[in-house]
Design a protein around this nucleic acid. Structure first.
Length: 437
RNA sequence: GUGGCCGUAGCUCAGCUGGUAGAGCACAGGAUUGUGGCUCCUGAGGUCGUGGGUUCGAGACCCAUCGGCCACCCCA
């Protein structure tokens, strides 16, 4: 029988690597809560039209990277290639846009690209969107939030921030025309990719990697010269705020985004530790998008980070996360039968914070103890014939030379509670996870 | 989508100019008749990514295909 494998570019997260993901997700979630953001979850599948209207018809994402299919009733649906469009749609539909919203989300996104390091067909983003605030202060706060996240994760030294402003839609359109005209007269000096983009997505030529094209661009018209006074003021205010916040950044005039909906502020956190896929987190302002999707004009700004890329950065930095092992492993002779499970439940009732694994599947006493050791547990709880007849349990320390003790069950609870301070607490909650790093 | 390199046990890899598969780790059992870790012994596990071709014979060579990595492209 031929084995079925995962779809190309769509990976499993196996348990050994899960703690690293949990670390990123937990830190992000905790930070969002500290900044007053609320979580929103939207469907993975949306009407194709939503992405055509928001991302832009002629972008690569819409033209050749979307997972689009016909529903049974003939509707064209698409696996979301990014998160912003769905969030805007949901907020509009849920009537949330009559007031300021600070929202965050996380989840899988889908793009049919050629997989490589840091680029998958199903990948995961954690993102934020803020609606109803037009000023540069919220732009700056979002960047302060992300900067804090890198510090919390210990990767602040490997990412750097680049920012730029794209101005309003009208100014950008004027600039685009001018740029296309100017480059069109010099098309023979452009690399083939850039020549193609001249008619599709001319602004993207600005961040071409081709040296010849870059040299040519040195003399090209600048977007900055097409901005109106308000756009400039917004950008300058943002730069000042970032200075005051102590968030280092570099202005990159050539920084443009691949999605059509951005206006004014755009930014990218990049690294050179990941090869070609160096963008770890990116976003910007999209003041026109809500209206473009049929809502009232609403200023908005947001960002998304690539979870896989951040996890890769953590791993490159030698970081390794492990879930804490269990506290105790309960093993017993076959005659104990169901009493083992009953005892385990009894213990869990009394010690809500106790991480207790019960031996299942039989096997020799010796092999059970071996499994207890491999589990990483600090204690083995042993139930043999003697313990059965006297209603006791033997508490055997596995990580020290202390002698084992055979105790009445109530005394076992007390002993575990005194050795494991967290055992009596009810754990869970936003930051309740104890991840050893 | 384009180009280059690669694909042997769960993992990391060895396998000389083609003669028909190996190590370490991990896993299971035992040495140790209720007691783990260290050591030693034993065992299980691979149609050598898949399918064709060349050959008396292919893990090694050729082609295709799938997958991975890297760059382009794209972007988080």
């Amino acid at each position: 029988m031929e084995k079925i494998r995962s779809v190309r570019g769509m990976h499993d997260l196996l348990p050994d690597r899960a703690p690293l993901w949990q670390r990123v997700e937990d830190e992000a979630r905790a930070l969002f809560e500290r900044y007053g953001f609320r979580e929103i979850r939207t469907p993975i599948v949306e009407h194709t039209e939503l992405f055509r209207r928001s991302i832009g018809e002629v972008t690569d994402i819409v033209e050749k990277e979307m997972y689009t299919f016909l529903d049974r009733n003939g509707d064209s649906l698409t696996l979301r290639p990014e998160g912003t469009a769905g969030v805007v749609r949901a907020c509009e539909e849920g009537g949330l846009l009559n007031q300021v919203q600070r929202l965050w989300y996380r989840g899988p996104m889908f793009r049919h690209e050629r997989p490589q390091k840091g680029r998958l067909r199903q990948f995961h983003q954690i993102g934020a969107e803020v609606f109803g605030l037009a000023g540069p202060d919220i732009d700056a706060e979002l960047l302060a939030l992300t900067a804090r996240l890198w510090r919390a994760l210990g990767i602040a030294d490997r990412v750097r921030l680049e920012i730029n402003t794209l101005g309003g839609a009208a100014d950008r359109a004027r600039y685009r025309e001018t740029l296309v005209a100017w480059l069109g007269e010099r098309a023979e000096r452009l690399d083939p990719d850039s020549r193609r983009r001249l008619s599709t997505n001319p602004l993207r030529i600005l961040d071409s990697k081709d040296p010849g094209t870059q040299a040519l661009l040195a003399g090209a018209p600048r977007l900055l010269d097409f901005l109106d006074a308000e756009d400039r003021a917004h950008f300058e205010a943002l730069c000042t705020l970032l200075d005051e916040l102590g968030v280092p950044f570099r202005v990159n005039e050539r920084l443009v985004r691949g999605l059509d909906y951005y206006t004014r502020t755009v930014f990218e956190w990049t690294t050179d530790a990941l090869g070609a896929q160096g963008t770890v987190c990116a976003g910007g302002r999209y003041d026109g998008l809500v209206a473009q999707l049929g809502g009232r004009p609403t200023p908005a700004v947001g960002f998304a980070l690539g979870v896989e890329r951040v996890v890769l950065l953590l791993e490159e930095g030698g970081q390794d996360a492990q879930l804490p092992p269990v506290d105790a492993y309960l093993a017993g002779v076959p005659e104990a039968g169901g009493r083992l499970l009953v005892l385990a439940e009894w213990l869990r009732d009394r010690l809500p914070g106790l991480r207790l694994m019960t031996h299942c599947g039989g096997g020799s006493f010796k092999s059970q103890l071996k499994k207890a050791d491999r589990s990483g547990a600090r204690f083995a709880l042993l139930v043999g014939p003697e313990e059965l007849s006297t209603s006791t349990v033997t508490l055997k320390p596995l990580r020290s030379d202390e002698p084992q003790r055979t105790l009445p069950v109530e005394a076992v609870v007390a002993a575990l509670a005194s050795h494991l301070p967290h055992a009596g607490e009810r754990h869970g909650g936003p930051s309740g996870r104890r991840t050893a790093v």
